[in-house]
């Protein structure tokens, strides 16, 4: 499955290059400037907007999952498809909804990321950085993804500004995976992964 999705990724990337070309497009959202300067620290406007919008999206997804009947059905289906089917939940339809939601979230992320620089094909590799985020937070934990994201972000930034100048160029890219390795040694389900219910 993993290999197929990687292959499909390459295929789609090729298709995009064929249609729209591999050069970069300029792309920016016209959002009001909210650059913050607190003490010695400078917070740029674009990353702040990205943070706000991703928190908003996150909140919407949480509300959808935990406050609506659709969300309840999604959580039930995620646990066991056959049981969900037996109780009248159309599993295929639920899977479709889940794919739609994830596509929506990815679109928001893509817009925010292209807002930092330019819109181009190679940008899609950013998606791979979600792997340590999700694994550190715990595969099945939603809050874990948020915490994991912040941890990985800080880890990357710190490694970029403190360790890379020591001569280790590119360490920034590796640091999250090293962190992931350490976390998985201590907690195999990730930091907030659901503890399996075991019956004795």
């Amino acid at each position: 499955m993993t290999i197929v999705s990687l292959g499909l990724g390459f295929f789609l990337r090729g298709c995009i290059q064929l249609i729209w070309g591999s050069h970069s497009y300029s792309f920016f959202l016209d959002l009001p400037d909210i650059t913050l300067e607190i003490g010695d620290l400078l917070y740029l406007s674009d990353p702040i907007w990205a943070g706000i919008l991703s928190l908003l999206t996150f909140g919407l997804v949480i509300v959808f999952l935990f406050r609506t009947r659709w969300g309840l059905a999604i959580r039930a289906t995620s646990e066991d498809q056959s049981k969900a089917m037996a109780f009248g939940i159309n599993a295929r339809f639920i899977l479709m909804i889940v794919w739609a939601i994830s596509a929506l979230c990815i679109t928001v992320a893509g817009i925010m990321i292209s807002n930092f620089g330019a819109l181009q094909v190679g940008m899609s590799y950013v998606g791979l950085r979600a792997i340590p985020v999700v694994l550190i937070g715990g595969m099945d934990s939603i809050g874990g993804a948020l915490v994991g994201g912040i941890i990985v972000g800080i880890c990357e930034a710190l490694a970029g500004s403190y360790i890379e100048p020591m001569g280790l160029v590119g360490f920034k890219e590796v640091a999250p995976y090293l962190l992931l390795l350490i976390v998985l040694f201590i907690r195999p389900y990730g930091l907030f992964g659901t503890v399996r219910i075991e019956r004795v």
């Binding site: 309840l72 959580r75 039930a76 646990e79 066991d80 056959s82 049981k83 037996a86 109780f87 219910i197």
Partner: peptide, 10 residues
């Protein structure tokens, strides 16, 4: 279904 088809985590 057999074997108590409930959703454990709900």
């Amino acid at each position: 279904m057999e074997d108590r088809p409930v959703f454990w985590y709900l």
